[in-house]
Design a binder for these strands. Structure first.
Lengths: 266, 266
DNA sequence: CGCAATTTTGACGTAGTTCAACACGTGTGG
DNA sequence: CCACACGTGTTGAACTACGTCAAAATTGCG
């Protein structure tokens, strides 16, 4: 986990944090439905029928001169299109966006490795937001049509889907509770840092540092702050010794104080 | 349920809005798992094994002088206690609260008739918040232990639970998207009014009026505003002809404008 | 190196909070 | 019956945090 290198550059820290490595399956929220099931006294691995592993999204051709041509496969799926699959992030990050009628793009969620994308579309069978890769990312894909066919035949698989959805229900509610009713920039950012660090804990192996990967702009958009304000609060937190900033890598130095800030009620 | 009294405001409108009548089962989010299942070519009604219908919470003895002694059965369940059941609101409202270590009570959700409470506790088997009835309310209760026993034997019931959880997944995400990244009091209140009206549409039969039932205090707490600010924004909306206020009853007069406000990005 | 995108800093105005006072309805007790 | 406390909601005035606009600094990449 700790490399000997000292460069203050992201790549080293990404490695140090395990970023851009794929998440271990046992830590992934999709895991419940990827595992073999025990049915009729035998072990069945049905996942090959519906699971598509580690698909790169926004992979850039490493050696061509095309690097800066706007890579178009950043988009995993688009808002208001029919559900085909649900996804788990393997590596990288995805931002979830909705576009209002005046063309403004609002970030409504971020998904880090091990987290699901699109399972909330199962009900309406339509995606509620667009999912866009930030940098090089990859996903595992579960085809809903094919999964359903298997599920009809194997009740044990349904049981696993229930486990998956139950966990998601908890995850979503707990995210909601992290942010609802927070208005001050300080408590929003504190809540955000704690929320994301916790979500990444299994992946990074650390409860006090994280690699945001996303731009300040996207974070500000998500939290409903101006990027200038966000920048100032970041600077303030660092000055007060709450965090240490190294580009997109954030070290939480005083987590308890951040928690207090996050729960602060003006 | 209906008192003969003529007091000017709320009671009459509650009747007009159908408030304090129980929601029709077909409009309830619990409905998926309350219905009979078709299994092995026959129709089975298993719900009697796990479903407890229309339990009053905070019912006041109607004719005693005890009315105003602090009624203690307002609490459906408490934060950080083991999950026993999930609930659907039949009538009234519930507020969901968490208490921070300094004793401050934060409202993290409101649940109106037809909405579920506690299903996000299935994963950790622990309630994440306290559920407290506002006024006279009632719930249907599904005992998890007993439901699970039935589910193990009847795969069709599991399918119904999947349907229920899928819908909840959508509902929760859509609530999250309604509020995340909103900071101005105007857009928060607009988003809130539209969100709650929509959620109550099937129950009240109206897409433009609603009975909040909860105090301004609780609404302000939920939205992260001061009650003074909330009061001012309510007054402003009414002055601008966006809404009409009759106590806790709100009429949405210009829904499109409210939607625009809700999606406004400073 | 040099351009472009991102991030940070500074000065100023506005929106929301804070604190205080007041209005209203309801229940309590003299 | 009235006086009073209490919860809830509204209003006013001063203060503060965040947004706004402009510009500088930093980073990333060819």
């Amino acid at each position: 986990m700790t490399t000997g290198k000292k460069l203050a550059n992201n790549v080293v820290y990404q490695q140090a944090l395990g970023q851009h490595h794929t998440i271990a399956c046992e830590n992934c929220s999709m895991n419940a439905i990827c595992q073999p099931v025990e049915a009729d006294g035998q072990t069945l691995d049905l996942s090959k029928n519906y699971l598509n592993k580690k698909i790169p999204v926004n992979a850039q051709a490493p050696d061509t001169s095309q690097r800066h041509t706007q890579v178009k496969n950043r988009i995993l799926f688009e808002e208001n299109t029919p559900l085909t699959s649900i996804y788990a992030v393997c590596s990288g990050v995805f931002k979830l966006c909705v576009t209002s009628k005046d063309g403004y793009e609002k970030v409504v969620g971020l998904r880090y490795p091990g987290e699901l994308i699109g399972e909330d579309a199962l009900f309406l069978e339509n995606y509620n937001y667009s999912a866009i890769a930030i940098g090089q990312s990859s996903v595992c894909e579960v085809s809903i049509e094919q999964f359903s066919s298997c599920g009809k035949l194997v009740p044990e698989l349904q049981q696993n889907l229930i486990a998956l959805l139950s966990k998601q229900s908890y995850v979503r509610q707990s995210n909601f509770q992290s942010f609802i009713g927070k208005k001050s920039a300080d408590s929003l950012l504190a809540a955000f840092l704690i929320n994301i660090t916790k979500r990444n804990e299994a992946y990074t192996g650390s409860s006090s540092k994280l690699n945001l990967l996303v731009s300040r702009n996207d974070v500000a958009n998500f939290l409903g702050l101006r990027r200038e304000t966000l920048s100032r609060v970041f600077a303030k937190f660092q000055k007060e010794g709450l965090i240490k900033i190294e580009g997109k890598i954030i070290h939480l130095l005083q987590k308890e104080l951040l928690c207090d800030l996050a729960n602060f009620h003006s």
